[in-house]
Design a protein around this nucleic acid. Sequence first.
DNA 1: AAAAAATATGCAAATTAGCGCATAAAATAT
DNA 2: ATATTTTATGCGCTAATTTGCATATTTTTT
Lengths: 247, 247
Amino acid sequence: MLKTERQAYILRKIDLHNRVLSSDLGIEINVSEDTIRRDLNELAELDKIVKVYGGALSKSFHSSFLRFDVYKADGKKIIAEKAVSLVQHDMFILTTGGTTVVEMARILPAGLQATFFTGSIPAAYEYAQHPNIQVIFMGDRISKSSQIAVGGEAISRINSIKADLCFLGINAIDGAGVSDNDWEVVQVKQSMIKASKKTVVLSITEKINTRQRFAVCGLDEIDTIITDSGPGNPLFEGFVAAGVKLL
Amino acid sequence: MLKTERQAYILRKIDLHNRVLSSDLGIEINVSEDTIRRDLNELAELDKIVKVYGGALSKSFHSSFLRFDVYKADGKKIIAEKAVSLVQHDMFILTTGGTTVVEMARILPAGLQATFFTGSIPAAYEYAQHPNIQVIFMGDRISKSSQIAVGGEAISRINSIKADLCFLGINAIDGAGVSDNDWEVVQVKQSMIKASKKTVVLSITEKINTRQRFAVCGLDEIDTIITDSGPGNPLFEGFVAAGVKLL
DNA sequence: AAAAAATATGCAAATTAGCGCATAAAATAT
DNA sequence: ATATTTTATGCGCTAATTTGCATATTTTTT
């Protein structure tokens, strides 16, 4: 087996499994682990994989691991500030949960008078800290993974209101729209979108052009996307073309 | 499992649950707790999580109301433990908010399987931390003073269920019964009492034989009072005479 | 104050990595 | 075709990393 072949084999395996062990590969291809290690180092040098102790990982896997919370928090603050600028007096606002939304809830101006509807426990808590904000919690069963109320009751509560704005914290968005990996949460988000005149997506740049298992809504249902990078970023071309505003 | 993978797993779990215990992770991933502790320390060093005694917390939630660090309220802990002893498997339990109830929520046994109904944001959050507990939040407008849902919707939701037990955190109790100073909260509590087969009052000793503006219920509607002093305390004579159990 | 739980530390065993070198294989030059 | 240079591979060795365990220490709970 030629060196190039071998490396191609390794790459394919990493693509498939997201990871390889040097020891496995040695036996599998029937070369010494030294050779494997040299291969992995070369591939890592070319930025195709990430070498770790004992083997290697796919780049996507590792980048999700490497996200800098500090940086991320900064990004979320930027987003939160932009989002706050859309909030006006006496609005009715629906929001999901998620750290970005919570961040926004924290920095709402003290004087602001508005009504916030949410099913998220952390978000509700933050809203309740503001003296002039009325908080309506749309309850039901609490999903442990996302700390928000899910289920039929929650959804019918959402359906019974009409909000001016919906702030949607998301997991993934691309040209096809918003997607998520939790079916119960998807249903709640869909109801929220339908119950609001305008939908504003809050997303850190990392999530742009990623996709997850379940579709939440198409780009046509989104009015604005707020990210931590400027609207000029070429990453957003597809969204602008679809008529979505950027902030 | 590679070290990097393990740490990624830990990060994901913290993202999802906001906190992890070293002991859980050790069993889950099947490595020693030493290794987990070393991982947590490394991740904390990189500023990705917050290390605390016993495990770690998500950075984003650490700063808000959710912390399980030292919370010195000896009396309330005693009450909480007595209360927990009344909880049995597969019960339906209604609870108010209040620090005593939250304290109880924190120390519920890990294996306990039960359903908790509440309208309190801090209590709901604590319940949601337990893997086998189902949490139903009975939502409506959030009262800022008490962090619980109040109003017609909340009350009609409460009326629609039938619980085995109601844990009632209170403000004042004397020979005439339980009283409170917030009319909206009173209404919620009254509904909760009616919706439960048994009502258990949680109260620190200081509140015994005090009264506030609005009556919540008479002693005849209370089955048990749990305090931080022993049942022999002469303070409780009137309650015993009225047929209330003491713990 | 005592008991229990969690942590830190030092140490040993196992695994993985890196280096130099000999040899084999391939490419290039003569 | 042969010699020479370059590249690739495996082996022996040492170094570094990781992990679990025992023990002492600290923190928390009772």
